[in-house]
Design a binder for these strands. Structure first.
Lengths: 342, 342
DNA sequence: TTGTATGCGTTATCAT
DNA sequence: ATGATAACGCATACAA
């Protein structure tokens, strides 16, 4: 440890001619300190550049005033917005936010949870792919809020967008434009949201009398998406989709790139729509038609739910907040009414 | 604290019929433990779901195996890439990375430093706007690495792109395309990189015989950039710039938006180039010509320098790593050789 | 190979 | 209004 950090509450106390206890009281804003004493102590703190050791404090009190957020890909503007919302809500209540990046790896997910719990964050906001560590947390009665996918048998707060409604809206929009050969470029197979999308997609198409819907599963990273998109667009002309619903903005990017490689124009040759609005959607060529989810709000609400539970653990009841998404029509779907604006 | 977290090393020891000391040895991988004892202890750990308390460990050892990264705007892909690089490097050495978002506020910057130091992160990677807290850290001999701006009188490792060379290249490219009315849409006034850009910009233009260069200072958030860009493009026709160098990708976005509002085409009416490449640059309309900086590498090297210093504090000597940027010509500058590819 | 004693920096509790 | 003492959970030094 560094010299400067060797400054402890004892040093401050000595310099101010009081006991550590009194310094502690000043630090924690107790009123039971004489104004002049308080002043002397404050001076000592400033002169020594004293910063309380949060480890010692946390060890003793059992609270760190820190919460953790685990997301699949912090490089995705969607998750950045979620994080920003959570940070805001946390900061208002005097909590710090620690963000971990899962990157699609279940191993990493468990690792991160271990690290954060080891550091005794007071609670967790989790965009979890794997349910395993969650049941563990549940057994420990460790407070956490799920953002996005729900998990069977896991009793917890949940905050998420209505993915089902979103996909219905997206597919419906394409149908209303006359499309019949529509494909879903989905995320990794098997998780909750992925299943929701497939369910909504097939149901909507079936209701419109369109059989055997095309579903491709890519990964959310660039490579996986690009390969899946290329495969989709390389199908023989009769099978090739004339419209694609991408499960998130990065997958939409993949479609754009793949189409470019194959000399396919968007929206003339393939229409494109996707989940999640973001700054660049209105600037990308072509401007993307998206199903917008209130990412920032999701982050805020998730943090708020967690903080509420921390405040009153006994009174906690699992809450589920599901937000309807909003269709923003731009150009990539080929709609006549597509706006240039964001 | 939660029931599940009440599991301490003592509980594990009791269950395994040994002392806390022996458990500690297993946790830290000492070889001096009988295989069968080790096994018993491991079982106890698993059954109880024991996770060591990093607070207690850190308090005792004086090391947390955690480093902090403070950036101006984690929402910007550039900084996300830096963070990702730093996380990689850290993880390889068994360190966790905690990221803080400064958001252009010096108050927030000091606050974050206080919080992280309070939590006794072993060192800091800082993209600092304000020099004040740095001198404080220096006096305390607290290890930190600067990413981006340097600061006078601050002795520390520095990792950054060569902003001066970058702006020279960008302005030079526009000059070579025949432009004379070139403006710099700069970031916030006064910091190191901002001054570097102005210096390189004026010098390059002067060398080409172009007088009185136009420099506008925006903030890096969307609003500030948009206003500045609009002001620039709304100048009377004789003064209006025919080419703009944007100080980062978000400012370039502002220019695109502002131009659209004013019915100005890019690159026909205004050419546009900017710093920092990113996924969307090759998809944005028009594809952006950029000066690419090795963001990921910067993050990695910064972390590596910090870890090296932590490993051998006595042998530490301040190192400065400056990377030349690379010009990637696409369409927004109006160059004939502009590629469609990324 | 395993155990005992001690202290890291802070605050809760009880005392003055 | 302030102080003394103990305790949080763990690892270091030393002992057995």
């Amino acid at each position: 440890m560094n010299k400067g950090l060797r400054v402890t509450i004892q040093d401050v106390a000595a310099r101010a001619g009081v006991t550590a206890m009194t310094v502690s009281r000043v630090l924690n804003g107790s009123h039971r300190v004489a104004p002049e004493t308080r002043q002397r102590i404050q001076s000592a703190i400033d002169e020594l550049g004293y910063i309380p050791n949060a480890l010692a404090r946390g060890l003793l009190t059992g609270r760190t005033r820190t919460i953790g957020l685990l997301v699949d890909d912090i490089g995705n503007p969607y998750w950045t917005a979620v994080a920003s919302g959570a940070e805001d809500a946390g900061q208002r209540a005097g909590y710090s936010l620690v963000v971990g990046n899962i990157g699609g790896s279940e191993v990493r997910e468990e690792q991160l949870i271990r690290t954060l719990v080891g550091n005794r964050v007071d609670g967790l906001l989790i965009n979890a792919a794997s349910g395993r560590p969650l049941t563990q947390l549940m057994k420990s009665n460790y407070p956490f809020v799920l953002i996005g996918p729900e998990h069977k048998g896991v009793r917890s707060d949940v905050v998420r967008g209505d993915v089902y409604a979103g996909i219905v809206g997206l597919a419906g929009h394409l149908l209303s434009l006359g499309h019949r050969k529509i494909a879903l470029l989905n995320g990794p197979k098997g998780d909750f949201e992925s299943r929701e999308r497939v369910r909504g997609f097939t149901k909507t198409l079936a209701a419109a009398g369109v059989g055997s819907p095309l579903v491709a599963n890519g990964t959310f990273d660039y490579r996986g998406g690009y390969d899946a998109a290329t495969a989709l667009l390389s199908l023989p002309a009769r099978e090739r989709p004339r419209a694609i619903v991408a499960a998130n903005n990065f997958l939409a990017l993949s479609v754009i790139e793949a189409a470019r490689e194959l000399n396919l124009r968007i929206p003339e040759d393939v229409a494109l729509v996707c989940f999640d609005d973001f700054v660049f959607a209105a600037v990308i060529d072509p401007f993307l038609t998206v199903m917008s989810q209130p990412a920032r709000l999701l982050g805020q609400q998730a943090a708020d739910l967690l903080l509420k539970r921390l405040d009153d653990p006994a009174g906690w009841q699992p809450t589920k907040l599901i937000h309807p998404p909003e269709l923003i029509v731009r150009r990539s779907c080929g709609s006549k009414s597509g706006r240039r604006e964001r």
